[in-house]
Write a protein that binds this DNA or RNA. Structure first.
Lengths: 199, 199
DNA sequence: TGTTTTGCATAACAGGTGTTGTGGGAACGT
DNA sequence: ACGTTCCCACAACACCTGTTATGCAAAACA
């Protein structure tokens, strides 16, 4: 019998980490079982031992990548607008690690848009992200830091801004250094704070 | 000898259109020569007759898609903020055709981020788009419709916003109907108009 | 009308893909 | 010390990929 379930899962995590590395370097177009195997100095036999098919492999890798981001060090203590700012900040590709993660996400969009199952997963993920943002917006509105616009619209707007900024930063990193990313985000937040409501 | 050069180029356009259809339906991951061939009721022999390799095929198709968008009906007459709004509006996936185009572009990001040559092309494209937006911003500032913030930052911000909105609209079309896209964009523009300058 | 050129279907090719056994050696339980 | 179980390298598989070669009908030209 298996010694411990933890060993099995830990090994699966190792495999997923190798998948991340291959994805960050060569994208989904260059993701092959052999590439992942040689990346971790193993053979495809190991992969098939832990994952029944390639689909399951990438699904697990993406899930783990998502949890990996969600489990990041929470800058506790912040509230309202500051919390919103912090939440948006740690999505941006300011560090090489965050840039690699985002590069994987952006790369996953092609496959996701072609597969309804993956697309549903992504849609749910982004909807959840918007909800988190919306809660921060509501709190900021309650504190009087933001005008009482529709929180869902503000959240969708902020999420759009961050996603698009990620894309542009990935394609021309020299034009969008971390400092400019922060400056642009602060500009967006400032615009939200001083904007008047709609009709 | 060839009857006319137009025939040859017209056929290449037909092939590229078939490539678009396959890309919009199955993404770059599902783009194969056989799929394109059957899409237009032909065989791979036709494709290789007009394009030396698959790389050239997709490159030509993307170039044509880009020109196709650039050659859209220009809503002449608008100036300043209205022109900026119009320019941003016709990027959004408000029509099925625009949604398909955007779906192709989003799908191309994975391959582009893996290939430096393609990445440079995309970076140049988005830089050029930002320049166009920046010019509109400058004009709007001259007309007093926008505060005198850094035009490059405003352009980058607007481009980010639109790109991110495209992504979200592609993944959950029902949550982002055209009317909401317009509303969100107008909200963003209104925020820009009432925002104060930075330090 | 005879000749040449073009347009493209057909087929074959070499290489890479995900997947499926098979086997042996190490780790474990007894 | 023995038997069992697990882990995974190795190899083979059927399939699909882009590319190349061949051949033939139709059109263009003389």
């Amino acid at each position: 019998m298996p010694r411990h379930k933890g060993d099995h899962d830990a090994r699966r995590r190792d495999v997923s980490a190798a998948v991340w590395r291959v994805l960050a370097a060569h994208g989904f177009g260059g993701l092959t079982l052999r590439a992942v195997a040689t990346e971790m100095g193993a053979t495809t036999g190991l992969l098939t031992h832990y994952f029944p098919s390639k689909k399951d492999l990438v699904a697990h890798a993406l899930t783990l990548l998502d949890e990996h981001r969600a489990a990041q060090p929470r800058p506790t203590g912040a509230e309202g607008l500051a919390a919103l700012r912090a939440a948006l900040l740690d999505i941006l590709p300011s560090t090489p690690q965050a840039a690699a993660d985002n590069r994987i996400w952006v790369g996953s969009w092609d496959a996701a848009l072609a597969d309804p199952e993956l697309a549903a997963g992504h849609a749910a993920r982004y909807a959840r992200s918007r909800e988190r943002i919306r809660d921060h917006v509501r709190e900021a509105q309650r504190l009087g830091e933001l005008p009482p616009s529709d929180p869902d619209d503000v959240a969708a707007s902020a999420q759009s801004f961050v996603l698009g900024l990620i894309v542009q930063a990935l394609f021309s990193a020299e034009e969008f250094p971390p400092e400019r990313q922060v400056r642009l985000l602060d500009g967006h937040l400032a615009a939200l704070a001083t904007a008047a409501e709609g009709p």
